[in-house]
Amino acid sequence: MAVESPGQFLLGKVDEVARWAQSSSVWPLTMGLACCAIEMMTATAPEYDLARFGSEVFRASPRQADLMIVSGRVAQKMAPIIKRLYDQMADPKWVISMGACASSGGVFDNYAVVQGVDTIVPVDVYMPGCPPTPDGLLYAVNLIQQQIRQGGRGGILARA
């Protein structure tokens, strides 16, 4: 990128370092709803091991989490709670909608399921699958890390 002054170069570097630090320690919120939650747990298990990508711990408190992985179908009763949890998370925060149900309602096109969690919270990465495999979740977390490092959100990179 074009640099006009040494000061800007330094700030740019600090920015880069900050983004690198953020992307290397994305701590998810334990937002496990249904079947996808089990695959999310499996992603932390030995075979797939999410921790090596920096997601060492899942935080139960939204105040301490960076990433909300909405894993599972969102019922009508649960929708306001997801919004509330998202609001409670501190900036900067990212959202992965894991699975077909969270992305678009999935197999359940009926009265009870919210047709996509993006009607409630902004989503950065959509993951199709029913449930997606844990390595798919690893890829989604990698995409989030790319987004963090590039400083943007959404766009064509958001298709997992």
Binding site: G105, D109, Y111, T119
Partner: peptide, 17 residues
């Protein structure tokens, strides 16, 4: 089936969004 709010919207709903 899809509830009164979405009863007459065409399927699939992601085409709307």
């Amino acid at each position: 089936l899809r509830g009164p709010a979405r009863e007459r919207t065409p399927r699939p709903s992601f085409a709307l969004k």
